[in-house]
Design a protein around this nucleic acid. Structure first.
Lengths: 332, 332
DNA sequence: CATAGAAATGCACACGTTAACAATGCTCTT
DNA sequence: AAGAGCATTGTTAACGTGTGCATTTCTATG
């Protein structure tokens, strides 16, 4: 049995209410008794029962960080940066609960009593039902990474389309005209945004793309490898390939070297995300940096502020993506 | 205001006790009323208040997954596999709380009321105080990844030393005699185990290692790069380098190619961990697979079983590591 | 038909905390 | 000196759930 405020009260010769107030720094309590009680609590090694507190205060001190899935499509680096960003912000005040939405059989346990707030790192529209569910239950909610229309939420997203646009334009500026794309996982919003940026840039420069230059992938290493293999077998091989994330770019480079060709001499490769390892690949990967950690931090901060003040701007905020030029693209 | 069992009771014309029993499938309740109550609960969209339940049952339904740190030394892939492994096991029954131990200012909130069980993914002895704290508070505890002596706990660790031994022996079998090592983060147990395996193998084959062949690193990409740079400047450059993890191996390869040399023609490189990307590097990395996901899954399963049965074997269980031969080591 | 016992349900309290309201003692003002 | 007002503490109820014990109703047995 652990110590409770009543135990402390008995020892201090006061009521348990006084103890509660003293430990919560209520101004109602005489500073001297306050100190005395705190000392006793310390010496008894008291720790509050959060279940009891939660019950009466109607707060769980739990924060949810939910990903679309923890299986295919979520890269390790993405998960890592997101968790780091959020954990940096919440300090000792909250528990961070990490989970894949597709791991839930039912959303039963997801409710206001169980979560003071929820951060959804949304990668696909398949999350829509979850987001609507949470929004419906009036759980404070921030959606990151994917713009969500139907529901009014706080929504932070990286500007993928613009990043893809600038990257593609850079390829064009380097003299490339035959530029292929290895696409991300079907159904992911980011897949679409990056494809759109790519098309927009090519269209603006009057470059048309043969159907065969669109190759599908699913964001993992293996899919980049097989996609690039297909491209290399084409009669009119592209001179540059835009891979929709860095993982696939790594797989793609692998496919190139396996054939005795080299990047960027024989074919240029660019990625997206700027993973930790991208600067250390050979050749170092030209890519687009996505500020996931900043995004997560901002999301967590906004959520906490909302929980405290019940006040927020429910709108989409774009986070700037940044072209990172390294060595995997040759000027021709 | 959300619905409570009292609301259901009123509607069903029974006492809230009956409702509680019905929803918990108590055999005391008439099957018919049980069904009727469940139906009403369903239609009212009832979800139990876990704070209240926790208070009376003295269980939090929270599981902690704690890492030594979420900053340097913990690679993204490691975090990813661990979270995936644990989440696969716990299903809808528990909340998984993820956190870096060094993020805690005080362990105040870590107690039996708040956590039904804890999994420590321990990388360094700096966790010792945390482990002792949790063990002291009699929180069901599993320690993964690092053997812990002083305290009796359930302890699952990969056999790093044997892995490093086999890898090093393989290098010797390929004809290498000048084998350097890029070490992991100081103070991490894995650093020591891998170094020991390396030394043991070389010693067994009567190979002595010059002092300059021990280069320090800290498990991140950059440190592998700088460490390899140092090795390449040596007058008697090694013919093979054992990097204590794959991240550093990637950095090391980078340093080699930057100098116009190549792996494995000019120098062989081996890693440790078998990260997702390691098979896709150029050249594909020879390394040692560490079954982190299995380890995590086993840890979670054991923990859950212990929570339910209060029965366990408190001993160290070794998980087999596996030599993965790819293309980054040349036979000379 | 009476009664023992089982089946089904309800009453009342407990878990540990917070908070509205009441009560006490003190100081200061007129 | 009496009463207003403040500072400090206590009394009591509430949050939603589970459970030991009492109670009621029904069934079966002699």
């Amino acid at each position: 049995m652990s110590v409770t405020i009543k135990d402390i009260a008995k020892l201090a010769g006061v009521s348990h209410t006084t103890v509660s107030r003293a430990l919560n720094d209520s101004p109602l309590i005489n500073p001297e008794t306050k100190e005395r009680i705190k000392a006793i609590a310390g010496s008894m090694n008291y720790t509050p029962n959060y279940s009891a507190r939660s019950l009466v205060l109607d707060r769980s001190y739990n924060l949810g960080l939910f990903f679309t899935t923890l299986h295919t499509g979520t890269s390790a680096g993405f998960l890592y940066e997101a968790i780091k960003g959020v954990n940096d912000v919440i300090k000792d005040d909250y528990n961070l609960i990490v989970r894949g939405i597709d791991d839930y059989k039912s959303f039963h346990k997801v409710n206001r009593k169980n979560f003071d707030g929820i951060i959804v790192m949304s990668q696909s529209e398949s999350d829509q039902s979850f987001i609507e569910y949470a929004s419906d239950k009036e759980i404070p909610l921030v959606v990151l990474n994917r713009p969500v229309e139907s529901v009014q939420v706080m929504n932070f997203v990286p500007d993928d389309q613009s990043g893809a646009y600038r990257l593609t334009e850079y390829l064009v500026q380097q003299g490339h005209r035959n530029i292929a794309i290895i696409e991300g996982k079907q159904g992911f919003k980011s897949t679409q945004a990056r494809r759109d940026g790519y098309r927009e840039a090519l269209h603006k420069h009057g470059i048309s793309v043969p159907e065969a230059y669109y190759v599908s992938g699913n964001y993992d290493l293996e899919s980049g490898h097989t996609a690039m293999s297909k491209l290399l077998e084409l009669p009119d091989r592209p001179t540059a390939v835009f891979c929709c994330n860095d993982d696939m770019a790594l797989g793609a480079v692998k496919a190139v070297t396996e054939r005795g060709l080299s990047v960027p001499e024989d074919i240029s490769v660019a990625g997206f995300d700027d993973h930790l390892f991208s600067a250390f690949m050979s050749p170092a990967l030209t890519t687009v940096r996505r500020p996931i950690e900043e995004l997560s931090r901002a999301g967590a901060e906004t959520l906490l502020k909302f929980i405290e003040t019940k006040h927020s701007e429910k709108s989409v905020v774009l986070f700037h993506t940044e072209l990172v030029i390294r060595d995997s693209v040759k000027s021709i």
